[in-house]
């Protein structure tokens, strides 16, 4: 093998393309904790989330749906354990399910026009998306006894999210809320859900 060929084989390989050059730069964003760029959020524990749940339930029992929804939207769990976040999602889903379809739009409009209502509907949209994502992974798990078959493509065997009764009902509630929120708060609301670094 000639020396030229050896040389070109070494340089023409494309291994260098897979080098993550950002990792080699000292002050690049991958070597930097980006959370320090934002102001910290107050931490909410699971106990707090449960307490909000009981308060909201009381309001619901008293027939104050708007107060109940507003109550849980004003205290989103941005900084807290997974359990606290799930508990709060549970609270909001309960409230959403207990409100009748005909009451959705007037209720959202009244929240939107109130002080800080814009922010509240952004929070609601975040929880709607979280709620939609929550049901999916549990149903699509394959049983461990079966030989793994990697089809690579879309498989209907695992069951679509929402194919079983309770999740399906919850999903349709969330979908109709999603539609109503977009009617009131516009597409900007979806954009903010995606860009916001404060995750629920």
């Amino acid at each position: 093998m000639s020396i030229i060929q050896q040389h070109s084989n070494a340089t023409l390989g494309d291994a260098w393309r897979t080098i993550n050059i950002d990792a080699l730069t000292e002050d690049s964003s991958v070597n930097f904790d980006t959370s320090t760029l934002h102001p910290p959020q107050p931490e909410i524990s699971e106990a707090d989330a449960r307490q909000i749940n009981t308060q909201v339930r009381q309001l619901l029992r008293g027939g104050d749906a708007e107060g109940a929804l507003r109550g849980c939207l004003d205290t989103p769990v941005y900084n807290g354990s997974e359990a606290a976040k799930d508990a709060h999602l549970q609270t909001i889903t309960e409230v959403l399910q207990s409100i009748k379809a005909s009451e959705m739009s007037p209720l959202l409009k009244s929240i939107y026009s109130s002080e800080g209502g814009n922010e509240a509907l952004d929070v609601l949209m975040k929880y709607i998306y979280k709620g939609m994502g929550a049901g999916a992974p549990k149903v699509s798990r394959t049983p461990s006894g079966v030989t793994p078959q990697s089809t690579g493509g879309f498989s209907q065997v695992g069951g679509r999210p929402g194919s079983n009764e309770p999740t399906g009902a919850a999903m349709s509630v969330l979908l109709s809320w999603h539609e109503k929120v977009v009617d009131v708060a516009g597409l900007g609301c979806i954009g903010r859900t995606m860009t916001d670094w404060r995750r629920v």
Binding site: L37, E119, D122, R192, T195, D196, R198
Partner: peptide, 8 residues
């Protein structure tokens, strides 16, 4: 300065 939801 940044705003609350901190979009780029």
């Amino acid at each position: 300065f940044l705003n609350n939801s901190a979009g780029w």
